[in-house]
């Protein structure tokens, strides 16, 4: 698995999976933190796009859980959120996020980011 998109907004899931799959990446989606952890363990994605405001388990806790997990901590976590305040950004990095992107995002930029990252992994 290349990318896991975690967002409770179905349209974010739809647009990201559409462009990423079209560009040849294997993509999975999750709608909340718990589901994200489950899918991350099972599918071992290289990159996770993570929303912050989600039901059940929010993005910050999910990020921390990923980074504290010995087997998952290598995953590149990109927080993708509508919460664009400096304080959220700081907390994101404190929880171990590798990158922080604010909505609205450009699918094209996401694709080139993923391409660059996965190229670096290979």
């Amino acid at each position: 698995m290349d990318v896991l998109v975690v967002d409770d907004d179905p349209y974010v899931q739809r647009s990201l999976t559409f462009v990423l799959r079209r560009e040849g990446f294997a993509v999975e989606v999750a709608s909340n933190g718990e589901e994200a952890m489950f899918k991350a363990r099972n599918t071992r994605p290289k990159i996770v796009f993570l929303d912050i405001m989600m039901p059940k388990m929010n993005g910050f806790s999910t990020c921390r859980s990923i980074k504290e997990d010995v087997e998952l901590k290598e995953i590149y976590v990109i927080i993708l959120t509508g919460k664009g305040q400096e304080i959220d950004r700081e907390q994101g990095f404190r929880e171990g996020a590798d990158e922080f992107i604010t909505k609205p995002f450009s699918p094209r930029e996401i694709v080139s980011k993923v391409r660059a990252l996965l190229g670096a992994f290979h």
């Binding site: 647009s15 509508g82 664009g84 450009s106 699918p107």
Partner: peptide
């Protein structure tokens, strides 16, 4: 205001994403 900005970003994000997709492919 931070709530408003967050809420406005969501639909804006959809509009931007899907229009860009339609323009790109």
């Amino acid at each position: 205001i931070s709530g408003v900005s967050h809420e406005l970003r969501a639909p804006l994000s959809s509009i931007r994403s899907f229009s860009e997709i339609l323009l790109t492919y």
